[in-house]
Write a protein that binds this DNA or RNA. Structure first.
Lengths: 345, 345
DNA sequence: TCAAGCCGCTAATGCGTATTAGCAGTTATG
DNA sequence: CATAACTGCTAATACGCATTAGCGGCTTGA
């Protein structure tokens, strides 16, 4: 039971009365004119293979071929634990689908409690033919090593160049944000506020850039460059600035401020319009309010990233950078600007 | 850019002016008294390794060592696509956590559109050190081959012997079902019905067995041995049989019948108590009703299965079979039997 | 002074497969 | 009839690493 030694091609060869090389040739469908195995021999070998249930060791195979048909999926953060689950699930779904279609399996390398490194001591990642990197965080040093290295990878989410162009599939936040700004302006808003970071992560910068481009500069009444600030503070600032519309980068902030505003008797969007830039998960589930926003095509991004990665692995395709459009989400928190000014403390 | 050859130990050796064997010894912490590398040489080699960013090829490593620290996760059905997602997610979560703690990575082998085989042509599964098998379906022939083979595996969910004992971690449905039956009887129910398969899958049989043991035989008024039957038919049968309480194995059936019953003016549990055997996902989300049921400890099962698998891989531990208790879920659909008989057509 | 022991390192080997060069026997070609 | 071409197969090799046997130089002990 314990020492049930694995079968090897040598075993098959012995049983079939041929050489190991012949077994290999039979297995790999002796094509062309090189290894020519007549049907009779082929059948004999195949019979032994069937009878014994032999299967080639993928490790040894990989050893000589160099490829595995395995894609790594790396996340700095744990992928499943519930808080994150809703964030990663659409990505994993898309990756799995695409990998399936392309005949690849997935090697999950998900963040530990301790931050996980790509270039650790035990880089089992190299077992895969290439990898997709998920997650908002990204160690810049590791990114640079990846870029300069020869290991195929694709990032989900736009990344700035790091010693070279980074292959990625991202959401095209800038135009999506611009479109929402234009909608707000078309609805008469002239006093617009922005709550959220405008630097740091690429995705933050993209949003901010799209916002700036569309707003023209004159209409921005307040820019609270922070996330997670107490709702009361934020709301006070917004009201003090006479904002009629506010853009949040973080759904959580929007939810808190919206609840507080209603609590204070303000009507949304009657007195204050709210736009969330990017649909974070559970927009409608956490609260009854459906925020005006745009949809991040997570599943499509993941599919595209997977396909891109396979192109790089199989055809050594050049670096691509792809941004997928984000469709607007109507929602119910953006309305025409109110003609009367209400101020309730 | 294309031919950026991977570094090997030989490269490191050349750069450090030593032999490949020395590099390997340095990497594997020359323990004991066998390969003794003085600090000076060790430092020199380590410096080159750091400078070049070399990492050992896990494939070659596996080739000689035999183990990978990778666990396969096999599902006959696709794991992520949304309909299934809620079913598999808790399992994956538990597996990921346990694997993480034990220092293993996960190789996902998820079902294709076409049914996937464990023993296919391309058994990449063997790349892993062992595997966990998820899913309700299970090809009996493959199960038998697994049992007789030497590849370590653990099933999630109880499985009957197949040419030998099957290692598994399951939910202990029988006593959990019994407990619910007793509760119903304690509440005065004497006319109990059972809707669901009582043979086929092991999990169905366990439920049925637990039900039978507790009910004693006399009280079973109807046994509709089917799932997915039209709610109207089922309800009519239940009413015709004067059932005061009904056990469903399938949540979907329970939902349909409950809705119809309410629609016809019956009160639940006033006129009819409903028990669902096993909490299928989204019990509360799909409908407002919280069914009386028992909780299947999916995450704990997955964790236990993972740990069991590692024991088998690392210590060649004997086959274990483990059933985890299922806690009762109070719910709101099981109440005392009504003294008056209401019949509404 | 010589044997024994130790130290620092390397050559050699094997893991299971794919692949190539090439051998012996047969058949076609001029 | 000699040579070429083909057929069916095998020996040999490489892939990158871990591991073991053992080599030459040095130190120690008698």
């Amino acid at each position: 039971m314990a020492a049930a030694k694995r079968l090897t091609q040598r075993d098959i060869a012995r049983l079939a009365g041929v050489s190991q090389a012949t077994v290999s040739l039979v297995l790999n469908g002796a094509d062309g004119n090189d290894g020519r195995i007549p049907a009779e021999t082929r059948n004999r070998v195949n019979k032994v293979i069937r009878d014994t249930g032999y299967v080639a060791d993928p490790v040894a195979r990989r050893m000589v071929k160099g490829l595995n048909r395995i894609l790594g999926v790396f996340t700095y953060e744990p992928a499943f634990p519930s808080a994150q689950a809703d964030f990663f699930t659409p990505f994993l779904l898309g990756i799995e689908e695409a990998a399936q279609e392309l005949g690849y399996d997935l090697l999950l390398l998900t963040g530990a409690g301790t931050r996980r490194k790509i270039f650790g001591d035990n880089v089992r990642l190299r077992l895969a033919d290439g990898c997709i990197i998920l997650g908002r965080q990204f160690d810049p040093a590791e990114l640079e090593r990846l870029v300069t290295g020869d290991f195929p990878f694709v990032a989900v989410g736009r990344r700035d160049d790091a010693g070279g162009p980074v292959p990625y599939v991202g959401g095209d936040y800038a135009p999506a944000t611009s479109a929402l700004v234009h909608r707000a302006r078309d609805l008469g808003h002239h006093r617009i506020a922005y709550v959220g970071l405008n630097q740091g992560a690429e995705s933050s910068e993209d949003r901010w850039q799209g916002f700036q481009e569309a707003i023209g500069g004159a209409d921005l009444v307040t820019n609270i460059n922070a996330v997670g600030r107490p709702a009361a503070e934020v709301l006070d600032i917004l009201l003090a600035a006479d904002a009629t519309c506010v853009f949040f980068t973080e759904l959580a902030d929007a939810i808190a401020v919206e609840a507080l505003a209603r609590n204070r008797g303000l009507s949304i969007p009657g007195d204050l319009s709210i736009v969330v830039i990017g649909n974070h998960i559970r927009a409608e589930q956490a609260t009854g309010t459906r925020f005006t926003s745009f949809a991040i095509p997570r599943e499509a991004m993941a599919r595209a990233a997977t396909q891109m990665l396979v192109r790089r692995v199989e055809d050594d395709a050049p670096v691509e950078q792809l941004l997928l459009p984000c469709e607007p989400v109507e929602g119910e928190t953006l309305g025409p600007v109110s003609t009367q000014t209400i101020r309730i403390k």
